[in-house]
């Protein structure tokens, strides 16, 4: 008689979770948060062509970390769902909540039914009339969905990045300050001996959902404008950020933390 191997459901799920988590933590990170002018997305992504942040609909955008082919698949499906909804009903009937639910059901089903879970973590964000009305949903590989309060950090060492965001995040931040905060959060991990790294514009993918723009609110920040914003972020660290500026930078006028 053939030997039957038994694995408890707990064990199976644990193994899958561990597998997915490992895959995600290998990748570079993405931060998403509300600022004064809308919702900001900053990803560490050296590629100009393979995006981690994309437009879904008028007020909705998508950010992801993990395996590119898997989250690209989800992104395309999201665009299809949103366009189909908007075409069947009205443009205003396409919501981030509906999309987050569809993603949650899909990821949940893939996690339990297929032998290999998706190694992705995604954020669906919708910009509202004010920062309080912004909606940020974070979805993980097993289909769990969280309604996040103002900011999301995903990818490798997301806990450490979230800590920096928690300290510095305020919804009244202007665009320059918001980018400075995002860059300092992303740069706070992965350096040698726990030192912050220096991130430059070509390493970043930056996009915003603009609160005041009518119709399609998604806009990428690229080229000279991005250079300018990231360079100024390097010289004036966000308020309350504990990281000291790199040694080569001039001393900030305000009393900054010393490492």
């Amino acid at each position: 008689m053939a030997m039957q191997f038994y694995a408890s459901p707990e064990q199976v799920m644990r193994d899958r979770s561990e597998y997915a988590r490992k895959g995600i933590s290998r990748g570079r990170s993405v931060v998403v948060f509300s600022y004064e002018g809308g919702v900001l997305f900053v990803a560490e992504n050296p590629s100009n062509a393979l995006h981690k942040v994309s437009e879904i609909y008028d007020r909705i955008a998508f950010a992801a970390v993990g395996k590119y082919n898997e989250f690209e698949n989800l992104r395309v499906a999201g665009v299809r769902l949103a366009d189909m909804r908007g075409y069947s009903y009205d443009r205003r009937d396409v919501t981030a909540r509906g999309l987050a639910n569809a993603y949650a059901q899909t990821l949940g089903a893939i996690f339990t039914e297929q032998s290999k879970p998706y190694e992705v973590e995604i954020c669906v964000a919708q910009v509202g009339a004010s920062a309080e009305e912004d909606e940020l949903y974070r979805l993980t590989y097993d289909g769990s969905v969280g309604d996040e309060p103002g900011y999301v950090a995903m990818g490798g060492q997301s806990e450490a990045i979230a800590t920096v965001l928690r300290k510095g995040h305020r919804t009244e931040l202007g665009l320059a300050d918001a980018i400075a905060l995002a860059v300092s959060a992303l740069a706070s991990v992965g350096g040698e001996n726990g030192q912050p790294r220096t991130l430059t514009a070509p390493q970043l993918e930056v996009a915003v959902l603009e609160r005041t723009r009518p119709g399609r609110a998604f806009r990428r920040i690229v080229g000279a404008r991005l250079d300018e914003l990231v360079t100024s972020a390097g010289t004036t660290p966000a308020e309350d950020a504990t990281e000291a500026p790199p040694a080569t930078e001039p001393t900030p006028p305000a009393a900054g933390g010393e490492s």
Binding site: L74, G78, R85, N101, Q105
Partner: peptide, 24 residues
């Protein structure tokens, strides 16, 4: 509404391929 009864994204949406909405 674009969703399967289970609330999942339909398989057709997850299939890679066309970038035409009319074909979808």
């Amino acid at each position: 509404a674009g969703l399967e009864r289970s609330g999942r994204l339909p398989q057709a949406y997850l299939t890679p391929g066309s970038s035409s909405f009319t074909e979808l």
